[in-house]
Design a protein around this nucleic acid. Sequence first.
DNA 1: CTATAATTTGCACACGTGTGCAGTAAGGAG
DNA 2: CTCCTTACTGCACACGTGTGCAAATTATAG
Lengths: 334, 334
Amino acid sequence: MRVSIKDIAEAAGVSHSTVSRALSDSPLVKAETKARIRRLAQEMGYTPDAIARSLVTQRTQTIGIVVTTITDPFVAEVVQGIEDMAHEHGYSVILASSAAEPERELAAVEMLRAKRVDGVVVTSSRVGALYLAHLERIGVPVVLVNNHNQQSGRYTFSVSVDNQHGGHLATAHLIRRGHRRIAYVSGPANHSDDAGRLAGYRRALEEAGLPFEAALVVPGNGRLDGGERALYVLKDLDTPPTAVFCYNDMTAIGLLSAARRLGIQVPRELAVVGFDDIPLAAHVCPPLTTIAQPQREMGRLAMGMVFDLMTADEAGGGFSDVTVEGKLVVRETT
Amino acid sequence: MRVSIKDIAEAAGVSHSTVSRALSDSPLVKAETKARIRRLAQEMGYTPDAIARSLVTQRTQTIGIVVTTITDPFVAEVVQGIEDMAHEHGYSVILASSAAEPERELAAVEMLRAKRVDGVVVTSSRVGALYLAHLERIGVPVVLVNNHNQQSGRYTFSVSVDNQHGGHLATAHLIRRGHRRIAYVSGPANHSDDAGRLAGYRRALEEAGLPFEAALVVPGNGRLDGGERALYVLKDLDTPPTAVFCYNDMTAIGLLSAARRLGIQVPRELAVVGFDDIPLAAHVCPPLTTIAQPQREMGRLAMGMVFDLMTADEAGGGFSDVTVEGKLVVRETT
DNA sequence: CTATAATTTGCACACGTGTGCAGTAAGGAG
DNA sequence: CTCCTTACTGCACACGTGTGCAAATTATAG
């Protein structure tokens, strides 16, 4: 059976409040009494009850993270960054997958509210977009990662890559490589990142005096299969593109597989650029040119922002969304 | 400010115990009183306080998961399986990364104990091996995934792939393909999976009358860089192998990259087999032949076992470790 | 030795929810 | 109408920890 402060109090012949103070090193307790209680606690195998403590202190030392799925390599890197910094601050993390399903999305947010988490990080764009009001009802700092922050709340901010700049970098690189028919394979529907990347792609075309063709923008879903299907659409165009910029690395990797299956040589017949720079991007064939996001760092930035918001005063001043820039990493698909 | 049962009691003109009973649909409360209280709770935006409830019920509806790192694609799939089933049962999950560092390993286990989780799943082999006594002190069901279960506790079981069988499958496949000099690139030091896979590799060699050569067993670390380095060692042997079985897919993918860099043609000059069948295994170049583990299913099996153990009676009888078999998935690296 | 000040410890309450048991109210039978 | 039984609601306690304030103890000064 679990040992509680009461048990130690009985063994030590003092009150539970003296034990509580002794264990938290309060100056109100005599040093020798403290030492005696500490030794007893150790001998008796006492572990503080975080649940009871949370009820008293109104703090859970817990961060809630909402992801669409942890199996997305980009998300896993961001979550590892969050968890690393949470651990450094003595916090634990609750992971909730929203699976892009309304029932689970709402359940995830409501669960974090019920569990009284002290802060929330959201990497799921759907949750960031559709449940912002629910998130804010939790009443704790919320930081969105790669979500468009509608900024309706006092404690809601975001850490995002500059999607437009990244989209522009990717497309400009392809243009510099001599490409004139450049496709874009998009991400999940209504994904705020996607709109930015598309905008950057279009701006680079405009700047180069190249026409924007709607037929060259093909829907994907951010996953391997979406990239594969996109290539089948692109290759059947009257004038297929000679280059393609993909919404993310998973899309690009799926497209590379389809290219290999179709006997399309990359980059000679089709140049490919991804976005993210997940660890495997360097290990696909050919190694993928991509716009690298600092994934771990974005996780840490988001977690750091939550901690800063927790300790900020009532006014909550001095905070704003953080944008990080992607970097072009040229490998062998271009 | 958060609405509590007290607030609803005041608004409804009843005691807090009546509100508590009404919200939990107790038959002790008159139907019309229940309806009135329910409506008020809805209007007032009440969310039950899971912390207070846990203190009373001595249940947290929370599962703790200990992983080495969530960025391992295999682990991410298993965790997604766990979280999917946890959600189906109304449970949340706390994710703790042990990062193969003693300080974090102990901190992870102690944190789960303090948070009073109702069950624990461990995918980190080091934690399963080195901290089993600590895990059992939490006093809740513990299920190890791909850990050797020393079976010292009443509520500690495991869900594992049959490593020996898988190692045997992989090596036998290479032998059937005509290979006679087959290398093995191992996993992280003292990893229980590794020993099984090596044993299976050796048994297949013996059955084929092939000698075991220690020089053909090269240390890896389960990561991309370990696979890359391993190939540099293997290629410099007096008689390099014509095939290699890798501890896991990440090792194999790293090795494939090094092969490409060295101009070694796969599978013509070197056949490669991995283990796991992570989603990207089909998308590397060439697509990887591997021993597939049912990752999501293993996560669900582990989570299901925790729930079964929670509801089992005192005797805890009728449980045993679960072993699943890997399946050979032949792609283009062999 | 006594009085006052400082130090140490304990009492009681609280956090929010759940529940055993007692008390009150309502309904039914004689 | 009265008495007994059933239904409904509330009181008090509890879960484990933290803390304000009061009480007890110890130390110091005159």
